[in-house]
Each structure stands twice: as structure tokens, then as C-alpha cells.
Design a protein around this nucleic acid. Structure first.
Lengths: 170, 170
DNA sequence: TTGGAATGTCAACAACGCTGACATAAACTC
DNA sequence: GAGTTTATGTCAGCGTTGTTGACATTCCAA
């Protein structure tokens, strides 16, 4: 709790929350929290030889059914080669369906099958349960702040993708 | 912005922030924000054939100089074999020093060399810069909420490790 | 002093990032 | 319309970093 920085005499509002010490705590909190964030889905996934990449693909295909591979690429921020491996296994296992585009035959449109939807629900439920507990613990005001900081932490293009998804009610 | 859940008539406080829709937005925000969170250090690391694992090791050795391999394992939550590979390269490259324990010769105590400290500072500065900008954008109240939700999201044992680190002023 | 527990190392494997090379389809140029 | 360029998606191979299994060393306790 020691502060090495001088008190800010130039502002009516204390800037103590911007000290290196406070920032370090935030960084470490982010690290540990993200582990908790992914822990429950990870446990489910490892039973079926899938990983986090499969979860992400399933999540966003569910969010935007009919999306193209290229679209998904932009959202996930990985290379198409990397995504392709994941998609191939999901298609082989009958969780995802890939339909050739009608107007542009180069494109593949992606959909979850019933089996895929079932897994998505299972993963989402697990992740939401933890999130709900955390939200409930922290209360609505804290949640608003949480969201505000997260959004400020994103890269500009990621914030774009996020905002588009956020304001979409499927 | 549509809500499928009934309004909570049983509570004075609105529970709308606990709807599945709100939770999903939080989950996606967490996903995108974490990418931003690691983006700057990642760029530095890839220049020198290191990865995120090296960053984590360096960070926590800096936080707790003299820590043992076992200790680090518990904090990082990986297997010792995985950590060992990372530590070996860091030691070979002269960023980390490993000293055999005096009271228990099985243990190895880990320290950053000057070179290691230099890299740590470079990585931290990059990460803190983004964090500081996000904090500044969001304001002190939002930051308090951010921290509150993150802490509630951790696993119990991770919260232990975090709290111990948080309350340590090196 | 001997057997078991704890600590750390070495070897091999899987998930999932990456780049490079390529096939196909569409779009653009002339 | 023919040829070139651009866009989309697939296949092959590599690196980082997670995993489990086997093992050497050290400590401790029966």
C-alpha cells in the first residue's frame, strides 16, 4: 500500500489509481481472472480432445450463423491456416456445417449443427455460471466499471468488432 | 438491447445486469480485452523468439526474487515440465540466475540478472502504458469495479496467490 | 539406513499459433 | 472474350507451450 509517487496537487481528483503499483495489481488481476474465465469451458473441452480455439470458433459461429471463414478470421484475429485446422475437425465431427456461397462460390458459410449447438450451450452455460456469480458478488455498479475498463483496453479494430457484436440482438 | 427475462419484482435493485445477454457481452468483452492486454508485450517478445510464457516467468520472478521453481509453478498454474523449458532458455540466455538452495539443496532459487531486469522493465512499461490509458479513460470508479469483478472471477486458490502478491510491497 | 516424499530435469507428444505454396473462383483490364 | 490480378479457402510443415511419463537428487522419517 505504499506509494512512491507524489500526491497530485494539480487536480481535484486523486490520481492515485494510476500509480505503477495500482497498474501492476490490475495486470496481475487480469492474468489470474482470465484463467478463471476459461477454466470451466477448458475442463469440458479437454474431455473431447478440443481446445480453446474450438470454443472460440463455436461461440462466434453461434453468434453469427452463416458467417464466412474470412469474417470469422477478422473476429478471432488468427491466420486462416490456423482457423482452418480447427474448422476441419469441427466439420468432420459433425458440429459445424460449411455451405458453399450462392452468390460468391469462393465463400463458405458456417453453421452449427444440432450437435454443435448442444456443445455450445454446454460451454456457454459453464462460462456464464461463473460470470453470473462474479457479477452478483460485485454488483451492478462494479460491472459497469468492469465493462468500461475492458472496452478501453481493446485495440481499436477489436473494439469495432466487439461493438458490432454487442449491439446485435440475434 | 432486448431482454427475454421477466423483470425482477422481488428485489429493490434491478437484476437486468445478470441477464444472459449482459453476461454474453461481458464474456466477449473479456475475450477482446485480453487480446489488447497481451498485444504490446507480445510484439516485443516475438523479436527475440520468446513467448508469453517467458513474459509470465520474468514478471513473477521480478515480483518475488529468490522464489523457487515450485513456488512459481503454483502461481503460474502450469506443469513444472512446461515451466522448465522456459526457464532453461532464460537461464541459457543470461536473463535468469538459478541458485541451489542452501538449507534445502533440492530447491533452486530464481533471480533476474541485470539483463533480465532490463527486459522486464521494457515489457512492463509497454503493458502498463496501455493499462494506464484504459484506466484514465474509464476513471477511478470504473477501475474499482473492474478490480472487484476480476477478483470475483478468480478460482479460490488463484485469489489466494493474487491477494498475497497484491498485499506485498516489494 | 532404508523407503518414501519432494524437488527439479529430460524426452516425447498434442494443441494451436505461424509462414509458404497452391487451387479455385471472381473481378478487373484490355 | 482472353489474360491478369485479387480474394477465398486448403494443405504441408514449423515453433511455442501446454501435457504425461520416466528419472536423478535430496531430504526426512520410520
Amino acid at each position: 500500500m505504499s506509494e512512491i509517487r507524489p500526491a497530485p496537487a494539480f487536480s481535484g481528483e486523486s490520481l492515485l489509481f494510476l500509480t505503477d503499483e495500482q497498474l501492476r495489481q490490475g495486470i496481475e488481476a487480469m492474468f489470474f481472472a482470465y484463467r478463471g474465465f476459461t477454466a470451466d469451458p477448458d475442463r469440458i473441452l479437454e474431455q473431447m480432445a478440443y481446445g480453446r480455439a474450438h470454443h472460440r470458433a463455436i461461440h462466434f459461429i453461434n453468434r453469427a450463423p452463416g458467417t464466412t471463414v474470412n469474417n470469422l478470421l477478422a473476429i478471432l484475429g488468427v491466420t486462416k491456416q490456423s482457423l482452418n485446422r480447427v474448422l476441419r475437425t469441427l466439420i468432420e465431427d459433425g458440429l459445424v456445417e460449411s455451405r458453399v456461397g450462392t452468390v460468391d462460390k469462393r465463400e463458405r458459410h458456417l453453421f452449427l449443427t444440432e450437435k454443435g449447438k448442444a456443445l455450445e450451450t454446454r460451454l456457454s452455460d459453464a462460462q456464464r455460471a461463473r460470470m453470473r456469480a462474479a457479477y452478483k458478488d460485485a454488483g451492478p455498479e462494479a460491472v459497469a466499471g468492469f465493462r468500461k475498463v475492458l472496452e478501453a483496453m481493446m485495440d481499436a479494430d477489436m473494439r469495432h468488432a466487439y461493438t458490432k457484436l454487442r449491439d446485435t440482438t440475434s
